[in-house]
């Protein structure tokens, strides 16, 4: 399961993700993003400290948000203290475009 908590409201949004971000749970994050994407935003930070698992679909989803908001000049970053998740992000190259929040 995935829990998405809006840790900080717009315009400086922080979304805290807990559980698993994968093909099955990605829709949960999608629903939350739909709620906030129409708001006036300055930046968005995904906190992945609470994630246990992530798959390529989940990573693709995060990269997708980065690309969508980049068009609106809204920076998207990832805040993460999970070393294993961080390793995955580095290997895939996510860290090369999405900095630390």
């Amino acid at each position: 399961m995935l829990k998405v908590k809006i840790a900080q409201n717009p315009p400086h949004v922080i979304l805290a993700l807990e559980g698993e971000l994968d093909m099955a749970t990605g829709s949960i994050l999608e629903q939350v993003m739909e709620q906030i994407e129409s708001r006036d935003l300055v930046d968005i930070t995904f906190s992945l400290d609470g994630l246990n698992f992530i798959d390529s679909t989940g990573i693709g989803q995060l990269i997708g948000y980065y690309k969508v908001f980049a068009k609106r000049d809204i920076p998207v970053s990832i805040d993460n203290n999970n070393a294993e998740i961080e390793e995955i992000l580095a290997l895939i190259g996510v860290r090369e475009i999405m900095g630390v929040g």
């Binding site: 099955a24 994630l51 246990n52 798959d55 390529s56 995955i88």
Partner: peptide, 14 residues
């Protein structure tokens, strides 16, 4: 291969 080997990386979607 390194990504796939990570313990918290799920390969169900792959």
């Amino acid at each position: 291969l390194q990504v796939r080997a990570q313990p918290c990386f799920s390969i169900d979607d792959l």
